[in-house]
Design a protein around this nucleic acid. Structure first.
Lengths: 341, 341
DNA sequence: TACACATGCACCATCGAAGGTGCATATTGC
DNA sequence: GCAATATGCACCTTCGATGGTGCATGTGTA
């Protein structure tokens, strides 16, 4: 029975008995404060040896309870159904671990209630920070967290009450559009554009910035845009497909170029071409504000925007660690433009 | 100063003061054991009202410390770079929440050390269970967890020391192969197969089962398989691409059919065809043991296997909740076969 | 009226770790 | 040889929630 420690997790009290010391000494040794507490090197070594033998691991619940810091950082993502959010989650976890934090990522399926619920669960487990990506209502989450003294940071969408890190949608769209126009032989002032913008929601920040870039690139090239060429019809694949179908029916031919606002919308466009004959895709210059390896394989004349996830995550932790930057400002990160010949 | 509660999270002690009751009463009311403790309905209502007003949420750390149950269930996934793992994570979270558990998913990038580290972090936070998906060494994780009395379950790979839930790779591969052969006009005994199997690692369980199904389907159709038609060259896209290139060079022509062992490998195959001319893809009957919406758009004559994630996750929690099933058996779930005309 | 029993709640120790404090022994300076 | 200081560690409370126990009242029964 003296061996009852072997079947359960040892605590600092168990280790104290085994080493004929006290729990506070063991605790100090194992959490690194032992020099400050003037524990001798010899005793520290011995305690660490026994701790290793016993497979000790500190009970983070108890530590969190005592120190008021859990070391947990939470991230809320809407979906795992595209590479962008996958990369965000993956990079986030890596960066968090590098900093000794315990990352927990949860996916809320664009469900506003679930979002709130998930944030509250995280708060109940006393996360130190919450990162919101693609939340439908980031300000509400910021409010709930703020009331409990937990900082929030938004990624990929600008909230008004927390610092936000987003892609430079305007500049990237400008560049992407310029690229499409360049392939089509613009600039040469005075022509109507023949590039159609498809996908996204007109009133979401990212889409409206991208449309602004789209328009500016045309202005720079001296081209004008007819109203039916800008179609923020929603992100869903079938919506993009339907909208494109309506477009083609209206103008009676394929456009020279398409600016697709996400890989999800691109799915719809590709499906349209699959029905119409995939070879026709080769006649069109494609730009997509998003990245996916399969989509990248789709054709020639394609340019994709790949958001700079590593830079965004680096900036995230920079803001997190620097209280000065903890205002509610928006930091923009320039995405990569990937051009396939 | 009497209002110091408003800026920090209220505890049951704060609520006790506010309601002139005791902490144990407040605790009982808020955790649902109040009837057993004979707290009056009236008092319970009042306490709940105040708790709501104060925005109380229980400190799960403290609860976990006291009860020895954290309510956390962890999942380890290798990657977020394909739909399968995305769907697993997403469905897992949903099912866990439905059961009042707090799901935490972490991605270990197929790094054996990171896997162990992640498992240990989870143990430090006293998760109640760990689910391993695609771990490189599930038995090692099972051992570490077992030593701390934490149960583990494997998904998508059979471990020997924990219960495992995997797809029925053999049957699905049999069916997928039969489908390809059927499209090609088999069975008609006596012919050599012209379908090549590409991707995966010969010694990993899933791949070897799939190859077994691939062979059996041929045997059933009375077809024989030349050695160079089975090519478990690894999963990576470039490996599949290179292996396929070598195959085509060797036999001097395209095969009639290809059984690709994952969407990752399929990326390599598609890239090969992109170089060779995507239209050639139409001449080939494609089967892929995995699913991705873009891949699904690729061509006609395509059949894909979509693993039945909801069923797998249902089974996961069934096993978790039923100690009788907590042996180390393997449960197989039949995937869906998706046939595109 | 007295006694049994139910009702309704408060008190207290406990989970594991952290950290303030205090108390013995060494070590140093004079 | 003695005070002053340093060294090395143990003791004790605390974090918030849980649940066993105990102690007042209220209600029913003979």
């Amino acid at each position: 029975m003296t061996d009852s420690r072997s079947d359960k997790r040892p605590t600092i009290y168990d280790l104290a008995k085994l080493t004929n010391t006290s729990a506070s000494t063991v605790g100090a040794v194992l959490n690194g404060t032992w020099k400050k507490r003037r524990i001798s090197q010899k005793l520290a070594d011995q305690i660490r040896k026994v701790a290793r033998e016993q497979g000790y691991s500190p009970n983070m619940q108890a530590r969190a309870l005592r120190t008021e810091r859990s070391g947990i950082i939470g991230m809320i993502v809407p979906m795992y159904d595209n590479r962008y959010f996958g990369a965000l989650a993956q990079t986030f976890e890596q960066r968090a671990r590098e900093r000794g934090l315990f990352p927990i990522v949860t996916c809320t399926r664009r469900d506003p209630e679930l979002e709130i619920e998930a944030a509250q669960s995280m708060l109940a487990y006393r996360v130190d920070h919450i990162v919101c990506t693609g939340a439908t209502n980031p300000d509400k989450i910021a409010e709930i967290c703020g009331a409990q003294g937990v900082s929030t940071i938004n990624v990929d969408l600008p909230g008004t009450s927390s610092p936000s890190i987003i892609s430079d949608n305007y500049s990237a769209a400008l560049e992407l559009t310029a690229d499409i126009l360049g392939r089509l032989g613009f600039p040469c002032a005075g022509r109507d554009s023949d590039v159609v913008f498809i996908g996204g929601r007109a009133h979401d920040h990212n889409t409206s910035e991208r449309i602004r870039g789209f328009r500016m690139a045309h202005a720079n090239a001296g081209a004008t845009i007819a109203p039916e060429f800008v179609r923020p019809c929603g992100y869903a694949a079938h919506k993009a497909e339907r909208s494109f179908d309506a477009f083609v029916e209206k103008v009676g031919r394929l456009p020279s170029g398409i600016f697709v606002n996400s890989t999800i919308s691109l799915e719809g466009i590709v499906n349209w071409f699959k029905r119409a004959g995939l070879e026709k895709l080769e006649q069109v210059t494609l730009g997509c504000f998003d990245w996916d390896p399969y989509a990248a394989l789709l054709g020639r004349n394609t340019t994709m925007v790949r958001q700079n996830v590593p830079a965004m995550m680096d900036m995230l932790f920079e803001v997190l660690e620097d209280p000065d930057k903890r205002g509610s400002g928006v930091t923009q990160i320039m995405p990569d433009i990937i051009r396939m010949p």
